[in-house]
Design a protein around this nucleic acid. Structure first.
Lengths: 148, 148
DNA sequence: AATTAATACTTGCAAATTGCAAATAATATA
DNA sequence: TATATTATTTGCAATTTGCAAGTATTAATT
C-alpha cells in the first residue's frame, strides 16, 4: 500500500484552508474554534459545557472562556440545569442559529464546488468512503475517541 | 445529496485528534505546527522560508519565528542561498530527519490501524477517493490554492 | 445532620502563538 | 546613484493556551 500519510496530510491541510474561509457571517467575525463550537452546540441537543469540550477535545478551561466570549457576543446562551445546577446547558441564540446556518450553507457551497470536479459516480464513491472512514475511526483505538 | 459538511466536519476533526498524538519522538516534544513544518521541509527540496510558509498557509512572520525555534532545537538548518542571499533555504538536520521519520512511521501505524477495520476492497476505494478529493481541491477555486 | 468526596465549572497566572506594521538586508530597476 | 522590489526579521500588543487552584453544587459516608 502506498504512503497513506502523504495523501491524508494533504487532504486535511486543504480542508483546514477551506475551513478558515468560513468565519464571517452577517457582519460578525468569529474564529475557527468558535465556528466549530457553534457547529457542535447546534448539532447536539442542549449539551453541557463538559460534553462539547470533550467532543471537540478542547481543554475545559479554555472552552469555558470561549463560551464566555460567545455569550458576550450574543451567539450562545448558558443556562444552569434545574435538576443539577453544577451543569450548564448551552444553546444558540437566534443570532447564533443564524450564524450557524449561514456558515453551514457557505461550507456546503464550497464542498459542492469541490465535488463539481468529479463525475456522479465518483461523488458517490467519495461520500461513501468518507462515511466508511468515519466509522473506522470511531472503531479505532488509536485516536478519535471523543465525539459522538 | 446528503449533508456534505457533516461528514467532512467529523472526519477532519477526527484526523485532527489523530494528528495531535504525533508530536513526541525520541524524547523530543514538538507542537503540531512544528510537526507540519518538519513534514513539509522534508517533502520539498531545499525550500525557502517563503515557500514553506505559503504551502502551510501560515503568516510569514509567525513562520519565521517557528523556524527560529526549530533551529534552536537543532532540528532545522537555515542557510542563505548563495545566488540570492535574501532567500534562506531550509533543511532538516540529522536529528530533524530522525524525528520526521519517527513521526511518519507512527502516523502510518495509526492510519493502518484505522484501515484495518475495512475490507481490502474498501481500503482501495477509500484511498482512491482521497486522491480524487485532493485533485478536486487542487482544481477548486474556493480554497486550498496554496500547497503543491 | 454533618463531613467528606466527587463533579461541573470558573479564575489566576504565565507561557506560547498569533498578525500587523515597521525595520533590515539583499537584489533588481531606472 | 537613487529607487523600487523581494525575502526575511523584529517590535509590539492581543489572543489563546493549559495547569493549578478556586468556587459551587450534588452525592456518599459516617
Amino acid at each position: 500500500m502506498e504512503n497513506l500519510r502523504e495523501i491524508f496530510q494533504i487532504m486535511t491541510r486543504r480542508f483546514g484552508l477551506l475551513d478558515k474561509n468560513c468565519c464571517t457571517a452577517g457582519g460578525v467575525d468569529i474564529s475557527l474554534v468558535q465556528s466549530h463550537i457553534i457547529y457542535e452546540i447546534d448539532r447536539k441537543h442542549n449539551p453541557s459545557i463538559q460534553q462539547v469540550a470533550d467532543s471537540l477535545a478542547i481543554d475545559v478551561t479554555t472552552f469555558s472562556r470561549q463560551v464566555q466570549s460567545l455569550v458576550k457576543m450574543g451567539l450562545v446562551k448558558k443556562t444552569p440545569l434545574p435538576e443539577d445546577r453544577r451543569i450548564h446547558i448551552l444553546n444558540l441564540t437566534t443570532e447564533g442559529k443564524y450564524i450557524a446556518t449561514v456558515i453551514d450553507g457557505q461550507m456546503n457551497v464550497y464542498l459542492k464546488e469541490v465535488f463539481s470536479h468529479m463525475s456522479e459516480f465518483e461523488q458517490e464513491m467519495v461520500i461513501n468512503s468518507i462515511k466508511l472512514l468515519n466509522e473506522s475511526m470511531a472503531k479505532s483505538s488509536v485516536c478519535c475517541t471523543p465525539l459522538g
